[in-house]
Design a protein around this nucleic acid. Structure first.
Length: 113
DNA sequence: ATTCTGACTTGGG
DNA sequence: CCCCAAGCCAGAA
């Protein structure tokens, strides 16, 4: 199913997810679970993907920098956006090894650690 | 109110 | 490395 913009704006959780995604630096990536935790909602990884699906088009978010824990772009069910997503990442200098990328190398680590 | 589904994660085998 | 079950939230029927 697809998202609806209105719900995104009245849901504080989705709002928090967007805030985190917006902070992912160029050339780096974060997993859904990571975004969820940083947003203050650990365990809600699924909701992150759900929120991004309903992301307003006007919103300028680096949604392509969010991938799954396996280090690969999550395939969409009804669209080919995953292909586009990989292109966008490669364009930022992220190298894919087949369908995956090296998470240890490209994973975003906020504020030292 | 109940059921199903989805851009997921994690732990075990 | 792969596959499976459970947990998770929100929206649609």
């Amino acid at each position: 199913m697809n998202g609806r913009n209105p719900t995104a704006e009245r849901s504080p959780r989705w709002q928090a997810f967007y805030e985190v995604v917006a902070q992912i630096p160029h050339g780096m990536v974060a997993t859904y679970g990571q975004v969820a935790s940083l947003a203050g909602y650990p365990g809600c990884a699924r909701q992150v993907g759900y929120a991004l699906a309903g992301m307003p088009e006007g919103l300028d978010l680096p949604w392509h920098r969010v991938i799954n824990a396996r280090g690969q772009v999550s395939p969409r069910t009804w669209t080919k956006l995953h292909e586009f997503q990989q292109v966008l990442l490669e364009r930022e200098g992220v190298a894919f090894k087949g369908v995956r990328l090296d998470l240890k190398r490209y994973r975003w680590q906020p504020e030292g650690s």
